[in-house]
Design a protein around this nucleic acid. Sequence first.
DNA 1: TTGTACGCGTTATCAA
DNA 2: TTGATAACGCGTACAA
Lengths: 339, 339
Amino acid sequence: MKKLPTIEDVAKKAKVSIATVSRVINKKDKVSKKTTARIESVIEELDYQPSFIARGLSIRKTFTIGVIMEDVVNPFFSQIVKGIGEVLQNNGYFMLLTNSEFNSNNEKKLTQLLIKQNVDGIIIAPINNDSESLRILKENEVLFFAVNCRADINGFDYISTDNLLGGYIGTKYLIEQGYEKIMYIRGTDDQPSLDKLEGFKKAIIESGLKVKDQIIIGKAKTYDDGKRIIENFIKKNGIKSIPEAIFTANDHSALGVMRVLNDFNLRIPQDISILGYDDIDESGLMNISLSTIRQEKYKMGEIAANELLMKIRNKEENVAKQILIKPVLVIRNSVISKK
Amino acid sequence: MKKLPTIEDVAKKAKVSIATVSRVINKKDKVSKKTTARIESVIEELDYQPSFIARGLSIRKTFTIGVIMEDVVNPFFSQIVKGIGEVLQNNGYFMLLTNSEFNSNNEKKLTQLLIKQNVDGIIIAPINNDSESLRILKENEVLFFAVNCRADINGFDYISTDNLLGGYIGTKYLIEQGYEKIMYIRGTDDQPSLDKLEGFKKAIIESGLKVKDQIIIGKAKTYDDGKRIIENFIKKNGIKSIPEAIFTANDHSALGVMRVLNDFNLRIPQDISILGYDDIDESGLMNISLSTIRQEKYKMGEIAANELLMKIRNKEENVAKQILIKPVLVIRNSVISKK
DNA sequence: TTGTACGCGTTATCAA
DNA sequence: TTGATAACGCGTACAA
């Protein structure tokens, strides 16, 4: 690795002090036009680039934001990452991307590492609401913003889809299509999943149906989870005990379920209607495209990054900013009206 | 942001010099058990974490690797990123992830920024072989490793799929199934795409067929590209002029093509066989699952990261390491034998 | 075994 | 308008 020219090299060559060089770089104090020109030409000549980390040490800012995601490959999260990355890049910030792999221990270690790394702020998709990472961030007074996480109690900033509403409108939609018995394939125990389930129940009750008449199984997060869970259900209860409508807590599991149903020669939506959640890109691709509840993933990333940068810039201690985005029902062709 | 305790705080509280504290942290020189214990307890007590950037300035290492990808959301790249990220994380390195968005100008700026940021090395998926970024990296003697890029001439280290072979075996396979007229939907002008096309031509010629009898169109990179290109072709030449076999340079376009064929009531594979390239997760999901050429994306990321770390650690100037991974034909059910 | 003091590359404060 | 020089937080020769 070649040693990069330093501010001192520039200063020597331009026959000025490093202070003066620093001034022309930061365009703050006045430097005579003559010397400015001379210094600038030397900078050009040496292809001098000020070192960010040296500057960081001096002004206590690294222009780096740590990002902790649960799984980058998952399109849901990678869309969020893209939104974050674009905003940061456009604002001259770096993104230090890390992966918690849905593991709380990793998550904790990563937040500590990022703090050691002196990031200017952190965007985190927390595994759960009472995650220790969140506590550490609060304790160290690190500026952070949470994504895909709703926790009004703790009073930290977050952005998330209104998943209670999402679960609700999805279920309502199925009921309106004439279904009275629905299989709900639930997600894990994180707040978004719990909210969706809550929304499901709310819609059921509100429509005069009974929760106990519905089939709630899970917990599914991936394509394989979806496959496994529905396969087990069929093995245990027989293919006929699957109701005519299935609502899953995420598109990935829905795709897995569809695959199994297809193998059993059940047609979608003629035999069984299926509704997903998330609206990942893949849901709309195939011949049977998945109706689903859309989450604004990219937008969540964008907003999280923008809000965090605002916090960093205006140091004012403002009240907690808690943002819920309304989900939207996307009707494709995996659900058919029963009426 | 709370001010974190420094090594000096620890030193004062433990009534030793900062040098001694530094020693127990880095476990190098000998420190008496007594003082070691005392210092460690103070560290614990203050929850002291050495600042990476201060250390970085001192030892000229940031334990940070810059990564320049073309598009993080694209599953092909996000798998690579995951491979890279995991290796780096396990080795105590950070990943500074950036997105060139297939734009050479961005790419150039990003490499300069990463250099300014004093990264210890860079992993780049270059947009093309004679990219200026590559020149800059060479010039500044930055340690780097390229992914998804083959360029024997310039003599830099890279890992890529042997795409010439991939294009070849895919085409061979279709020919073996009895197809003599194949539509090849090509990728862009980057080296991988050119190699695939070369492989396609090689197989055609080797089989006694003629390249001019085949239909080569493109350039496709995305799902929408695939849709658009096949739609335009149909509009221009009529649906009947589509040959019975299509080979696409990537799975995304294949999915787009499949979607259009489906809308025209053409069945896959009964009416038209289709072969993809990449083997992204989505290809195997649906009822008609895509036969394809597999690229080891995750593995490429892993290897690139490992090799780069080796270069960083053993400073020896070793010869260029140029790695080609053999692609594998994955047979699912989108191609049918004509015989 | 421990401490002093310098260097890493900047910014910022004060004098000149 | 410019220049010394002290931070910033850490590692490390060298001295003690």
